[in-house]
């Protein structure tokens, strides 16, 4: 109740110019959400082993790949636009629990086994961190 009263009190302080700034800000929030959170559907899958590219595969197929990593075999399933880790020899299985990923720039990594997958969009991918 006090909170509602405080909010109503605060409305007396706000002047017309403030409303302009508030509206512009909300517009900025909406625009930034629409433009930046709209990742395009992925096209290719890159599989990394020990941080080197093992291969690039199209996402528009339905296959299962088995890759031998540092600790054992990892199974990766590509299913017409989405991909996931099906089995891995790691202890915590975080990679498997991530589930399906399908948007560009999404990644799943399995650190114990040193395997990671990254989805590329139709446009060229941005290079990663370089100091």
């Amino acid at each position: 109740m006090i909170l509602i009263r405080k909010i109503l009190q605060s409305f007396k302080i706000i002047k017309p110019g403030d409303w302009l700034i508030i509206v512009l800000f909300c517009a900025l929030i909406i625009i930034s959400t629409k433009f930046l959170w709209n990742l395009p559907q992925g096209e290719y899958l890159e599989i990394y082993k020990n941080n080197e590219i093992l291969g690039t595969y199209s996402l528009n197929q339905k296959i299962t790949k088995i890759i031998n990593g540092a600790k054992g075999d990892t199974t990766i399933i590509i299913d017409n636009g989405k991909v996931r880790f099906a089995s891995a020899p790691c202890a915590k299985k975080y990679c498997i629990h991530q589930g399906w990923i399908n948007k560009a720039n999404q990644i799943i990594i399995c650190i114990p086994n040193k395997i990671s997958i990254s989805i590329l969009g139709a446009k060229t991918n941005y290079d990663s961190i370089n100091y």
Binding site: I14, G17, D18, I21, I22
Partner: peptide
């Protein structure tokens, strides 16, 4: 130099935080 008649400190705070 925004006129204080139309802009209270709320807009300054929002501009500064942005």
């Amino acid at each position: 130099n925004l006129s204080p008649k139309y802009f209270s400190l709320i807009s300054f705070s929002l501009i500064a935080s942005l």
